[in-house]
Simulated assay, not measured.
Amino acid sequence: MTSRVLFVSPASSPSLRQARFDDGDAIDDVGAARARAAAGSLPPAARVLTSPGVRCRQTAEALGLDGARTPELGAWDVGRWRGLTLDEVGATEPEAVARWLADPDSAPHGGESVHELCVRVGHWLDGARDFDGRTVAVVEPEVVRAAVVHALGLGAAAFWRLDVPPLTVTELSGRSGRWNLRLGRHLAASDTPSPR
């Protein structure tokens, strides 16, 4: 039995463009147009899931996907930093930011640490390995990063070394207790669905 999970990152939004911690904003017009143009470019899936966040739900809708909201794949809880840019937080709490970036167990914002995020997403991914078929999940970039860290058995510090651009697909295929990674690709109207 092989399980395939295609993680789709959301279309662009003001928060993504400004490097702002997710504040629940909607995707922007450019992102919505790109997502609509990419509708139909994903292979058929046995199930479709979305992060409960607005931009993930809107991206799924623009892609023509009807996904079930999945709290386990929700956005990273960054506590009181939500809605702020990293520069804004760095200007007022430079020591906290330095600690947060250096220590995967640190959560000076009062939300989840990198380690806790990776554990949460990893727990969901472990359960997904038992699902025979393809899952498409529209989730925040940090959820994709956490899934890759878990799937490859990387240390949580590797989380900061992974970039997930808007409207890209990162595929994990699992069998026999391990995951293989197919690196992200951009969704575009010219994409042809993979037959796998």
Rank of each mutant, 00 (worst) to 15 (best):
L16S: 15
L16Q: 14
A19M: 15
R20C: 11
F21Y: 15
G24V: 14
D25W: 12
D25V: 13
D25I: 14
A26D: 15
I27D: 00
I27K: 04
D28M: 12
D28L: 13
D28E: 12
D29W: 12
D29S: 15
D29G: 11
V30Q: 10
G31M: 01
A32P: 10
R34D: 12
A35F: 05
A38R: 01
A38Y: 04
A39L: 07
G40W: 11
G40I: 11
S41V: 09
S41Q: 01
L42V: 04
A46N: 11
R47Q: 15
R47Y: 05
T50M: 06
S51A: 12
S51G: 03
P52N: 04
V54M: 14
R55E: 01
C56A: 13
C56Y: 07
R57M: 06
R57F: 04
A60T: 04
A60R: 00
E61P: 07
A62P: 02
L63I: 08
G64K: 06
L65V: 05
G67I: 04
R69E: 15
T70I: 07
T70W: 05
P71V: 00
E72K: 05
E72I: 02
A75R: 07
W76D: 09
W76G: 08
W81F: 08
D87I: 14
V89T: 13
A91L: 07
T92F: 10
E93R: 06
E95M: 08
A96M: 05
A98D: 13
W100Y: 13
L101K: 04
P104T: 03
D105T: 09
S106E: 13
H109P: 09
H109W: 11
G111L: 09
E112D: 07
E112P: 09
S113L: 10
E116W: 02
V121Q: 01
H123N: 09
L125T: 06
A128H: 06
A128S: 13
R129L: 14
D130W: 01
D130E: 11
D130M: 00
T135L: 10
V138Q: 05
V138A: 05
V139D: 00
V144A: 00
